[in-house]
Simulated assay, not measured.
Amino acid sequence: MIAFASSFPGQILARQIVPGQELIVQKTGFLASEAGVSLSVYFQKKLGAGIFGGEGFIMQRLSGSGMAFLEFDGHVVQYDLQPGQQIVVDTGYLAAMEGSCSMEVQTVPGLKNMVFGGEGVFNTVVTGPGRVWLQTMPISNVAGEILKFMPSGK
């Protein structure tokens, strides 16, 4: 028997990888896989948005053949996008998407939205067709919330 666990409270998703149907996963999402699964780097195509967009720039590509196990933070919500259908998410909440989807990191429109919106400066736009998995509790957000309650040392 082989056992493994998530490093943070969340969910482990088992996904069969088959040739021609790759999976794009957040950079910390890969947990384990069978030997036939290949792991490589996936880059967001627009360098400027990728660098300043943070989480959405460097992801992992799973291809080949075999079972892969992925770990996501919090609860996982799955969406099936039709061709051309888009979903806009806060950067960091995109856990995974099928390789048939495309993604783009975009600047939040309007200075007021950036400054007073409380959600950051960038969003990730995922365009179908394909399946998308979103996570509800990225560890970076949890760390930021916990930091508010830490003694300041004054």
Rank of each mutant, 00 (worst) to 15 (best):
Ser33Gly: 10
Lys148Leu: 12
Gly56Lys: 06
Gln106Glu: 14
Arg15Lys: 14
Lys45Ile: 06
Val89Met: 08
Arg15Tyr: 07
Met97Trp: 08
Ala49Lys: 12
Cys101Phe: 03
Val121Tyr: 14
Tyr42Ala: 13
Leu47Thr: 13
Ser100Tyr: 00
Leu70Gly: 07
Glu55Pro: 11
Lys112Leu: 14
Val142Met: 14
Tyr79Thr: 07
Phe69Thr: 02
Arg61Cys: 10
Gly130Arg: 08
Gly50Lys: 09
Gly130Phe: 03
Leu62Asn: 05
Met1Tyr: 05
Met97Pro: 06
Phe122Tyr: 15
Met59Lys: 14
Gly54Thr: 01
Ser40Ala: 14
Ala96Glu: 08
Leu39Tyr: 04
Val18Thr: 15
Ile2Asn: 14
Gln60Val: 04
Leu70Lys: 06
Gly36Tyr: 07
Leu23His: 01
Ser6Ala: 15
Val89Asn: 07
Phe116Val: 11
Met114Tyr: 00
Gly50Gln: 06
Leu94His: 12
Gly10Leu: 03
Gln135Ile: 01
Val76Trp: 07
Thr107Pro: 01
Ile51Pro: 02
Gly144Cys: 03
Val126Met: 06
Val18Met: 10
Val88Met: 06
Ile87Thr: 09
Glu55Phe: 09
Lys27Ala: 11
Thr127Cys: 01
Lys154Ser: 13
Gly130Glu: 08
Met137Asn: 09
Ser100Lys: 09
Glu119Lys: 15
Glu34Val: 07
Leu13Lys: 15
Ile17Pro: 09
Ala32Phe: 02
Gln78Trp: 05
Lys45Gln: 15
Ile87Ser: 03
Pro109Asp: 06
Gly56Val: 01
Ser38Ala: 13
Leu23Thr: 05
Gly48His: 09
Arg15Met: 12
Ser6Asn: 14
Gln85Ala: 11
Gly99Thr: 05
Gly153Trp: 10
Gln26Lys: 07
Glu104Thr: 13
Ser38Trp: 05
Gly74Asp: 02
Val125Thr: 11
Met59Trp: 01
Phe30Asn: 04
Thr136Met: 12
Gln135Trp: 10
Asn123Asp: 11
Gly50His: 08
Thr124Tyr: 05
Trp133His: 10
Gly99Ile: 06
Ile17Gly: 08
Met97Lys: 13
Val37Trp: 01
Pro129Gln: 08
Val132Cys: 08
Ile17Cys: 07
Asp73Ala: 12
Ala5Ser: 15
Gly53Val: 05
Gly84Ser: 10
Asp90Phe: 00
Arg61Asn: 11
Arg61Ala: 11
Val115His: 02
Phe72Cys: 04
Ile139Met: 14
Gly20Arg: 07
Ile51Asn: 04
Glu55Ala: 15
Phe43Val: 01
Ser152Ala: 13
Pro151Ile: 05
Met103Ser: 11
Ile17His: 05
Leu70His: 07
Ala14Glu: 15
Val88Lys: 14
Trp133Ile: 00
His75Pro: 00
Val132Lys: 11
Phe122Val: 03
Gly153Arg: 10
Gly128Arg: 10
Ser33Gln: 03
Val132Ile: 09
Ser152Asp: 11
Ile146Phe: 15
Leu13Thr: 09
Thr91Met: 03
Gly29Tyr: 00
Pro19Asp: 03
Val126Asp: 10
Met137Lys: 11
Gly36Glu: 02
Leu31Ala: 14
Arg15Ser: 13
Lys112Thr: 12
Leu70Arg: 07
Ala68Thr: 02
Ala96Lys: 02
